[in-house]
Design a protein around this nucleic acid. Sequence first.
RNA 1: GUGGGCGUAGCUCAGCUGGUAGAGCAUCCGGUUGUGGUCCGGAAUGUCGCGGGUUCGAGCCCCGUCGCUCACCCCA
Length: 435
Amino acid sequence: MKFQAPKGVKEYLPPASSLFERVRDALIAPARLANYQLMELAIFEETEVFTRGVGESTDVVSKEMYTFTDRGDRSLTLRPEGTAGVMRAVIESGMDRGQLPVKIYYVGPFFRAERPQAGRYRQFYQVGIEAIGSEDPYLDVEVISIATQGFSNLGLKGFTLVINSLGDTESRIAYREALSKYLLSLSLDEATRERARINPLRVLDDKRPEISAALSQAPSILDFLNEPSRRDFEKVQAGLDSLDIQYEINPRLVRGLDYYTKTTFEFVHPQLGAQSGIGGGGRYDGLMESLGGQPLSGIGFGIGLDRVILACEAEGISGFFGNALSCFIIPLGSEFQSEAMFIATELRARGLRVDSAFGDRSLKAGMKAADKSGAQFAFVLGERESVSRSIELKELATGKVQSIKLEELASYLLTARSEDTSGIQGDISRENTRG
RNA sequence: GUGGGCGUAGCUCAGCUGGUAGAGCAUCCGGUUGUGGUCCGGAAUGUCGCGGGUUCGAGCCCCGUCGCUCACCCCA
């Protein structure tokens, strides 16, 4: 029996995992700089958090949830998205009664029971932020700009930002009615008609050519925005303009979750194949209330790490460069292994990344291992070095050798180590890329 | 749930009209004294996804099955 990861689960193993770390950290950093704080949340929730939060009529809830019953006969569900859980935690902890807006970020795995394909997995990773408790359209601008800052930390260029407004509840209801009427006047297949009745906005997302052709005559949401909604949308655009963030307006951008109102947005990357959305989000007005909290508006985004990683690969962006091993120690025979370990431990305590050869193999094998490790330096530890307290430190890239006293080794390695080139703007880069 | 493509060594793949398996890379050892990369020599590794069928004979043909992958619906 040969075991393998469950279907549709994408795992990140070395060396590819270094890009995963880099992407994750690059996307988190701007949220932290904007005073968003981490929530490390439950990975499974009471099922009702999602059925009420995300909406019964969505595909996510109706056919994609991993739901199970625990031993206490409770229905639990592996989280399919992040926003509902954040709202639940905000309400549960009473943060919605404190200083507003509440600004939260989160990272981690999410689960949907779909057929996997490129960029769509059953276990996938998202970085998300939520800002709850303010209707100020400049908060929308901040949220969007945090996402773009994350992408620019990575050096990503080939994406575009698409925005739309679904209007407030009043505008949305009016539009919904008009759209539903229009859609039902067309000859559509039964499943699509059903959707047109339950949630007509989502039909706008359909990419099948016959459907999208029929949609060309559909009424536009932008014509149904009432005065306050229209003004807010203009403010969002003006804010993006002032930050020099490029975008295009697509009145058909609705997104698949029921809770969205007003601003919606999505980042798409054309080089990814069918699943081209690398992130998206929007404002939600009724969500907090529907989960039993204060009637507060919020806005947030979710960015798909897996898809951003694909985008990086498409643009030739790779993992950390600054994490190279500083030094590789080759004990000459097993009698010097404990001393090698002692030196390695001292160097690591100074923040240096150090490895050594194991298994009592030949010197040649040790040097080969040093070479493959990518270490900046290597040295042999044997009788001579142990007695003289001095080593021949070899710089592997150049082959240059020089004598160094063991007591001076750490400070020598510290000054010689290569610069961090991860390019992340933000305090997190220090913690995760050094050494 | 529906459709297409693909399953041969750890990885990437070759294998002609059926004659019982190969390359490159990676791994390990060696090229005589305590220094890697290039080079040279050597070694190990496969129930050819699995089950059945056709055939004197199947990696190759047929059927089934499992898995991977891409796409649809939908979404990150």
